[in-house]
Amino acid sequence: MNQGLRIAFFGSSLVSAYWNGAATYYRGVIRALHARGHRVTFYEPDAFERQQHRDIPEPDWARDVVYSAQGTEALERCLEEARGSDVVVKASGVGVFDALLEARVLDLQGPRTQVIFWDVDAPATLERVQQNPDDAFRPLIARYDRILTYGGGNPVVRAYEALGARECVPIYNALDPSTHHPVPREPRFECDLAFLGNRLPDREARVEEFFLRAAQLYPEGKFLLGGSGWGDKRMPANVKYLGHVYTADHNVLNCTPRAVLNISRESMARFGFSPATRVFEAAGAGSCLITDAWEGIELFLEPGREVLVAKDGAEVAELVRSLDAQRARDIGNAARRRVLAEHTYAHRAVQVEQVLGYRAPKRAMGSALEGVA
């Protein structure tokens, strides 16, 4: 019987997407690894009110361990429990004890234990350590067995290698067809354009340009804004603010509007090759996606046929104004076919195994992409 790998994963949160943009990515990768026979224990801190805003039940495809963020005793017990795992992952942006974890997981390294740093915000991490030669993480980079990132392409790979990384491999965002898929439209989300994203310092200016300015330039249009932190933001009269949107409503929010908008954070747009989870979630739902322009989009979706690309708010407004329902459906359907064929988490799980040097039994290899075409 194939026992797979035993993986200890220290991340922000698996069970809550509240102020946690990596949740969908973690869930997709880990669920796909579980389907391949691997056993994942996910360690997350009780912090930032995430446990009070859980949006999925306790998963049966991973063991989720919540540790106290008050003092380090509970975390030390988790680290000791992780000892002897085949793979130990420290993800970026846990939000609690990050510097401690980055150093302590390396104590678990051994002949049978790979220790991985999985960077879910590589542009921000790299800018931080490049600007501060005394950053505590900088000398640790070369000690990790490898660095995985959820985007960034060759610019991120080269930057990490220049800092001494043994190996750096992007594992891009993808689609989990079991969680993001077409559903019936609902009147409460009817609009011409919807954007979903939390208010973050390196995203706000781009939201002002690509979404709020587009709404100003198309005053007869109806716009919806979802995500945490925007409550006190000045908005045009044709923008309705939804607040935090739980993941249970993401499909209907993707499927109801005529189009949905993706806006990259400033650092990710600058590096390129960093598709947000929202790109694949929207495509999986068959949505017509409009995205801000960034290098590498054509690796994932074909501009003009599977996605619409805008360089500023004026172009967003014009695309929405000229978009009829039939063209929107055609673009959404084409995007869905593309991501199902090439960009699911089943595809990413096979890539992770290859990077880790794991040879799956033939039966598992044969069924890895079952139902994905």
Score class of each variant (00 low, 15 high):
residue 183 V to K: 00
residue 14 L to Y: 05
residue 323 L to Y: 07
residue 263 I to G: 02
residue 195 F to Q: 02
residue 292 D to Q: 05
residue 133 P to M: 04
residue 196 L to T: 01
residue 313 G to R: 07
residue 129 V to P: 08
residue 6 R to K: 05
residue 258 R to F: 14
residue 227 G to W: 00
residue 77 R to I: 03
residue 229 G to W: 02
residue 149 T to N: 01
residue 241 Y to M: 02
residue 299 L to V: 00
residue 304 G to K: 06
residue 85 S to T: 05
residue 248 A to D: 13
residue 368 A to C: 08
residue 261 L to N: 01
residue 313 G to L: 05
residue 202 D to Q: 09
residue 173 N to S: 05
residue 319 L to D: 04
residue 236 P to M: 13
residue 8 A to G: 12
residue 112 R to H: 14
residue 32 A to Q: 13
residue 121 D to S: 09
residue 79 L to D: 04
residue 347 H to G: 03
residue 240 K to G: 00
residue 358 Y to A: 03
residue 124 A to V: 13
residue 254 N to Q: 09
residue 48 F to L: 14
residue 312 D to Y: 05
residue 300 F to R: 01
residue 95 G to E: 03
residue 21 G to W: 02
residue 74 A to L: 04
residue 323 L to C: 06
residue 6 R to Y: 00
residue 277 T to I: 15
residue 271 F to M: 13
residue 26 Y to E: 01
residue 42 F to N: 12
residue 357 G to F: 14
residue 173 N to Q: 07
residue 90 K to C: 07
residue 38 H to S: 11
residue 178 S to V: 02
residue 86 D to L: 01
residue 324 D to Y: 04
residue 327 R to N: 00
residue 340 L to N: 12
residue 357 G to A: 04
residue 187 P to V: 06
residue 73 E to Q: 08
residue 226 G to S: 02
residue 249 D to L: 14
residue 20 N to A: 04
residue 121 D to F: 15
residue 34 H to S: 01
residue 310 A to Q: 03
residue 371 G to A: 11
residue 267 S to Y: 05
residue 6 R to S: 15
residue 86 D to E: 04
residue 69 A to N: 14
residue 268 M to T: 11
residue 243 G to W: 10
residue 243 G to K: 02
residue 86 D to H: 09
residue 36 R to W: 04
residue 243 G to V: 07
residue 268 M to I: 03
residue 15 V to G: 11
residue 226 G to I: 07
residue 65 V to E: 06
residue 126 L to I: 09
residue 282 A to W: 02
residue 91 A to E: 05
residue 77 R to A: 08
residue 361 P to S: 07
residue 258 R to P: 04
residue 219 P to Y: 11
residue 143 R to E: 15
residue 32 A to G: 09
residue 353 E to P: 09
residue 161 E to D: 12
residue 301 L to F: 01
residue 254 N to H: 10
residue 197 G to K: 00
residue 349 A to M: 01
residue 323 L to R: 06
residue 295 E to R: 13
residue 276 A to N: 11
residue 19 W to A: 04
residue 37 G to P: 12
residue 170 P to K: 03
residue 297 I to K: 13
residue 14 L to D: 12
residue 134 D to F: 13
residue 272 G to V: 02
residue 342 E to G: 15
residue 97 F to Y: 03
residue 96 V to A: 08
residue 82 A to E: 08
residue 13 S to F: 05
residue 244 H to P: 10
residue 329 R to N: 06
residue 197 G to D: 07
residue 194 A to Q: 01
residue 270 R to E: 02
residue 51 Q to I: 00
residue 246 Y to F: 12
residue 159 A to N: 08
residue 313 G to T: 12
residue 196 L to P: 10
residue 9 F to C: 12
residue 327 R to V: 08
residue 108 L to M: 03
residue 147 I to M: 14
residue 331 I to N: 03
residue 346 A to G: 14
residue 338 R to Y: 11
residue 299 L to E: 15
residue 20 N to V: 03
residue 127 E to W: 02
residue 341 A to K: 15
residue 22 A to K: 12
residue 168 C to P: 00
residue 253 L to M: 07
residue 166 R to I: 09
residue 82 A to L: 04
residue 345 Y to M: 08
residue 316 V to S: 08
residue 108 L to T: 04
residue 368 A to W: 06
residue 226 G to P: 07
residue 213 R to D: 08
residue 157 V to L: 10
residue 184 P to H: 11
residue 333 N to I: 02
residue 194 A to E: 06
residue 217 L to V: 09
residue 230 W to M: 01
residue 175 L to I: 03
residue 121 D to V: 10
residue 14 L to M: 01
residue 247 T to I: 14
residue 303 P to N: 09
residue 285 A to C: 15
residue 286 G to S: 12
